[in-house]
Design a protein around this nucleic acid. Sequence first.
DNA 1: GTGAAAGCGCTAACAT
DNA 2: ATGTTAGCGCTTTCAC
Lengths: 345, 345
Amino acid sequence: MAGSDIGRQTGGKPVTARELARQLGVSQSTISRAYSQHASIAPAMRARVLEAAETLRYQPNVIARSLTTRRSNIVGIVMATMTNPFYPEMLEQLTKALQQIGLQTLLFHVPPGQEVDSELPLLMQYQVEAVVIASATISSAMAREWTATGRPAVLINRTVPDAGVTTVSCDNELGARQIADYLLARGHRRLAYVSGKPDTSTNVERERGFRGRLQQQGVALHAQAAGTEYSYAAGYQAALELAPSRPDAVFFANDIMAVGGMDAFRYERGLRVPDDVAIVGFDDIPMASWPSYQLTTVQQPLEQMVAATVSFLGETLVGPPRDPCMHIIPGTLIERASTRGGAKP
Amino acid sequence: MAGSDIGRQTGGKPVTARELARQLGVSQSTISRAYSQHASIAPAMRARVLEAAETLRYQPNVIARSLTTRRSNIVGIVMATMTNPFYPEMLEQLTKALQQIGLQTLLFHVPPGQEVDSELPLLMQYQVEAVVIASATISSAMAREWTATGRPAVLINRTVPDAGVTTVSCDNELGARQIADYLLARGHRRLAYVSGKPDTSTNVERERGFRGRLQQQGVALHAQAAGTEYSYAAGYQAALELAPSRPDAVFFANDIMAVGGMDAFRYERGLRVPDDVAIVGFDDIPMASWPSYQLTTVQQPLEQMVAATVSFLGETLVGPPRDPCMHIIPGTLIERASTRGGAKP
DNA sequence: GTGAAAGCGCTAACAT
DNA sequence: ATGTTAGCGCTTTCAC
């Protein structure tokens, strides 16, 4: 690693391929070829060019390149809030994996109230080659419009019905069913569900899985509280609403809510977890394994989700566009002390 | 919001300004002018162009624009790990604020072992107008090289001595001194410090502030443990090392470590917080205010830090380059139950 | 106020 | 293997 070739002369304009060519007494295309993997150029010549580039601090302008190649090597990532610790982790992994295959990440933040839809024209202007939408949803109309442009879109952790968008997600319904089975097997009968942000596919699927399974087993849902969003505070609030009905087990739509709920049960209502009330979440965020929480949860297969996303993008950006597909990966139920007792405070 | 103008015809190539011009029977420069704020164009004409653009799904190609204007409107953000919850929050705010002044964020992730330095040439190739480095440090040699290109660099939450880089940071030394004063005032005398990642400026400054103040007050540091990194696990580990020396108060280099340490003290050593040992952190991450932790800490002025960063960038990217400066903003000591007792488990 | 023409820095035929 | 030429889609003089 040279660590010394940033690419511009002191204070001046960046040196261009033409200048470098002039200095070397070669044509400008020769410079270009030196940076192109499969170009026919004498190895000696390439070496000469690269060496001169180093001393003159020449760096190819990839923006200009993308104008002719029509490949920006940029993918847009759209995220709503990152207050759920699950998402920073995902973003980090995603960015890393994309970088490894030579793709850069243009990050867009969608304010809570706003629609993802309104960001897409901007992404388009920046010529991103694909868009990854995480912790946010897109209208199916807009999704169709986007894919009509020939650019792939991947929705992580959300699905949009028949919009032709590729989806990568944990099997939420399966996970929720496993939770239901697990709680029933442990003898719980006064089961409650705390929903997450309404109308998100994750919430719908998890609720459907949980309720569906209970129904199959002939157990009625004891109580339900509506979280307004996927946050600690919403979980906390929901737990307070739920407490009077005295559930013996509560499934929160995700971990950050579960953690909030647990705190509310313990510190506001003096309930013991799991003795008075068992708690289950979904995601397996770092806090879930902290001794203060020891939260039973369904672990999302983050690595596989990222891998699926990136390999889909990688393939469809080189080869012929792959058809959109649904990648539904099963999660793993992780049993911890929030349901099975143990060394709790 | 139209919600319907993504910018490309179905499956085909994006429509260009030239095509749009041809359709309208005007020159291509007219199209350009319609999108330029201070161009001389008849209002009627502009309206005509914009309307046609909408129906034909024309969107200017900002990448091509940047070639002529030499303004990419892209800033690079370089982050190391985001496992410290303080950083996702910062990233979110930063991206939002940059977007508001028309700047987009190209995100680069630096793997733990790797140097930021190696990423900069890539940033340069993407013609970013400025770089913001968070949760990571740059060598001062590389920093000088970068600024020599005439592009601003901002280091958030880190400083690099005399490298000509603008720095935005909390007053770590002051904060640490306040913590020392606070703990002494509460009668603690067996004080310990848990250091963060060695050689980071934050760690150096916080340690200096804390030790310095103790020395001034004639109190010797009772014990110290070396965290290897800013993580929950490192804090946990450090607490275990510290426990035998029986400190009556521990200042952890940041909150995520403090939370880890607290869990270790409580669940591994059975100590009560704050009765047996008082705990203080730094940052004020969300978990610090959760009832399980109720962590006394110094709140970083995140909003002001982001505002300072963005306004510096905004100014220096339009007007004449501003000189690099140090923005040191005082934090706020927040007293919670981890030092003053209260409703603890 | 609008059109014509010359680039921005690069890649990709097409020559040689 | 290298040089020449023609753009990529846009902004910006310079005419009129």
